[in-house]
Design a protein around this nucleic acid. Sequence first.
DNA 1: GTCGGGTGGCGTCAAAGCTA
DNA 2: TAGCTTTGACGCCACCCGAC
Length: 677
Amino acid sequence: MGSSGEETEEESMVVEGGVSNVAMGRAGRVGRDRTSVAALVRRTRGVMWTPNEERRFLEALERFGRDWKACAAFIGTRTDEGVRSHAQKYFIKLFRAGMPLPQKVQETGTGYTLSGNPLNPKSKAALDYLARKPRSLPASKVGPWLTTQEENNFEPPLAPGKQADAERTVQNKTDVNARRRPRIMPLPMDLGPAHTQAEDDEEEPTQNIPKGVNEVSGEQNAPPVQQRTPDFDAPSRKRKTEHRSLRGMNEENLKAFLASSGGGFIRHRIGSSLSGSPDQDLFLEALGLYGLDWNQIVRYMNKSKKATTEASATRAAVISQSPSKDDVSSQANRGIGFKFASRGSSETSNSSFCCGSSGRDVGSEFTDIRAPDVGTNAQSGIPVALGAKKSKQMEGYSDAAMDALRDTARLFSSQRAYLASLKMGATSTHDCSAEASHPNGSSSDAQPWNRNKRLRAEVSELVLPSFSQVRSNHRSLDMSATAAYDARKSQVQYLLGDDDVGPPEQAEHSSLDQRTAEHAPLSPRFRRSTKILRDPRPSLHCHICARTSGKDKRRALYVCQNIKRGVCQKVICEKCMADYQLTVHLASDPESGWICPHCEGRCPRTARCVNYHRTNKNRSEGRKAPPRPRDGQTPSTDDTSSTAAGNSFVRHSQSEEAMQAADILRGFHLAGSALPV
DNA sequence: GTCGGGTGGCGTCAAAGCTA
DNA sequence: TAGCTTTGACGCCACCCGAC
């Protein structure tokens, strides 16, 4: 099973090394060292920008403007993605402070957004910053605390006379941050050229006050060279000393140093707070993550140790309590059972299930709670699991509760459960590793719904999202939050077999678009889409198949009516309308309130959002999928790995019937029949 | 050989989420 | 709460493959 990220990364390395020509088309197009970028992403994730990086960031802005790749290359220790992200907030901070953009940046747009377009002070991203008035900023002319009229007329940057005030404001703010914010000093490791003593001791760059503003155009004339960043704070001398003590050491030297110290160094720094004996590998890992932030290192090491111990205990517990095939089949007969693959031996049936969307992520215990995709068995196309993320909501629950949740997740793989998860946003988890390891299991008494009512209630709570989450999901549709929550709760209770709760209302509907926007609950997947679109133009591409309307506009695209609410801009093409039995007459009637399958939370397997999710998942793991196979290359059929290419293998190896069955089981009816509720 | 559909990856923006 | 990272989503493009 080539499911681990490490293996995938190794494949990428081989491909990029020139062994395979298949990948050269894509890899060559990208033209960058994937592995080093991925490693850089991992190393710099969550790491604060150092003063040195800040300086180089500013210098890069001066030199390259919005050419983020060039900026990233210049900085050397950050990816272009990280630079963009940092620049986004930096521009907002400049906007808030009324300070001009660097001239080179202004060449590609005078707006304070990454694209150069004017920053909308009312946008969510900007509002988070602008709504917070800097403590020492005089109640003057920046930000949304202006009057409405002022805000409408507001055009940063400030007039020259105000620039100095803004500079002072930034300086004051910087001082506040320097006092308040704990400093995290990332260890250089191999992040780039080692810092020198001279760099450490050099004075902060001289601030060059911007020369002024063209009062006619309102645009900045002179660039603020080496302008100090608003959140720049110099490290204390003590921390500088600490930093230097390990500075310059590469990983090998560091390991040697730690080994020679016999754990003494670790104990010296953090030993008093560490439970158990110091683990050098863990320490190194923490060091790479948190630099010399000893508190974080202690927290990380203790947490990791605890997690390792608990994982072993959980694994042992699951081995002894895993349900047997018969147990699960009996539940399937009740309508909430676990569907086994129709082909292969029992060994195959028990070992080939996996998590995540599209049958990937074997061994991945938690996936995204906001996108409850059902996985499909690579060979049978049978949905097998629901994904969920260990959110804060789940924290604080016992291991037993989590185990029970995982058991229940298997039950949720049935038609009803999945349907509910899509309709109502139910979440659950599925422990693939446990299942693969324990094919035989024990008696049905091990099932949580029979074993312990309290546990079941606990599971119900776990599966049920918080009231605020449901309220958030439904806010944009003006649906009563209380009603939505109650409906959701009833749905979960019904699915868990509570005899006192009848079938949920959704069961009465037989078609996707019989529900209108006024009544349809939102899926968690839609949660992020509740933004109010500033420019609610319909998408050019079908959300399901990504087709456009064609060069001659011959293909009709049906727009989701939620666009009127400013919360959706998706369109569905007429081919997909036909393929998925969506009623065109409703979609074509702007007064019908028809909403797209995405807003219904029932996107089919090929929908774009599924691709987004997969892409983002790959991206977050810092790797890319290996190339698709060419003629003569036989994809590994037993590979249900987490790669997108692996997904394409699945797609090609499945029969059409299996794929259709998978879609039906996923709750997306193809045959126009009533939903299998 | 050409064309177009299907599929998936990348670049990008903006908003959400996380952490100290 | 501020600062920073992560992620949802859109647009576009490259590649594969089948139909013509």
